[in-house]
Design a protein around this nucleic acid. Structure first.
Lengths: 187, 187
DNA sequence: GCTTATTCTAAACATATGTTATCGTTTTGT
DNA sequence: ACAAAACGATAACATATGTTTAGAATAAGC
């Protein structure tokens, strides 16, 4: 749990005792490649912290088509945070794209944190802000960048993604089809 | 400022004295139809609370095309929250679509709130969460609903929008062209 | 190590959606 | 009250992007 402790300690001021108490309420859970952490239509009561591996968030539309909306790797949090917050059924699925090791932060631990950690609310605020910034920035790119530019940007930010996830998922993440991405790369 | 006080009091537990002190750091600002509250490429240091009127958030792409990303009305907050949080230059513009009255929450007031209000951090968390949920839900709809369905949904949620904003902005908000929206309505 | 499944590219084809232009109608500003 | 601007509908046309299919290259599973 060392990495999780370090990540939290970087976000807020927190004592070792507080960290102990918080982390004691979390537990490790591992997933094999292609496992689903969480399915659509379920109620969501946990956030995952990724120790090792690579996961994605996807959503399935009425025609049964999958859309990948998010990739996450080591030292990041991942969840259907919307369903977690609103209490509504999940619309997303979380899936491991590699064998992965996660730490589960159950709702109880998080709410305990809001009440008992000195800066628990601040941690919650920072996480929500982080999620918002991530989403909004992606949206901005969707509006202002061409598929090709989004593709190049992704390669800058996450250079080894090609070796870790299949291209059709990258295409989906970029909002285009696999065929179209292949065409773009040709040029 | 009564409405702002009420909205805040509904979100967190807060004393009248705290509210007084907070609200004293805010001030009213009015805008005429078509005025810009805030321009792109600026640094953002305020959040607006809408007392009266209707505003939009828009972004301009490289080809000079405007995309409307958000409408907001009475009793809602509006801002380029991304730029506010990250300290980067604004990518969005905020524009009044009707003569509007707002209350400006300067960064100083908000940061003062985090430090001095009993539940200041919680208020910040709730606002960030609200923004996130809003964005994420829109994204979900973009993935899973057809333009026609998104149009119908918008009419359910915001029935009088047609009388308040021109159709080409609604189309832009839905992610389609004005011509296409006109075609959809014909059916 | 062999067999099966997955992945990427390519070509041919299909189409939803965008673009441009026109024309009444409505709204706005002075 | 009038002129100018903005707006909504429509038609004709253009095209970027999606769809389907096939085959060769890789990777995965037992």
């Amino acid at each position: 749990m060392e990495v999780l402790r370090a990540v939290i300690a970087k976000m807020i001021t927190i004592s070792a005792a507080e960290l102990d108490a918080f982390v004691a309420q979390c537990y490790r859970k591992t997933f094999k490649k292609k496992d689903f952490l969480s399915d659509a239509e379920r109620f969501v009561h946990e956030i995952y912290f990724i120790e090792e591996g690579l996961l994605r968030v996807m959503i399935t539309d009425v025609e049964g088509r999958e859309h990948t909306t998010h990739f996450a790797v080591e030292q990041q949090f991942i969840a259907d945070y919307n369903a977690f917050l609103t209490g509504q059924r999940s619309k997303y699925q979380l899936q491991a794209l590699e064998d992965s090791s996660t730490i589960v932060l159950p709702r109880k631990a998080i709410e305990w944190g809001y009440e008992h950690l000195q800066e628990g609310e601040k941690l919650g605020r920072l996480i929500a802000e982080y999620y918002f910034i991530y989403l909004d920035t992606r949206l901005q790119h969707q509006y202002t960048l061409s598929p090709k530019e989004r593709y190049d940007l992704m390669n800058d930010i996450f250079p080894d993604i090609h070796n870790r996830v299949p291209q059709h998922m990258i295409a989906s993440y970029l909002g285009i089809t696999a065929v179209h991405l292949s065409r773009i790369k040709r040029q």
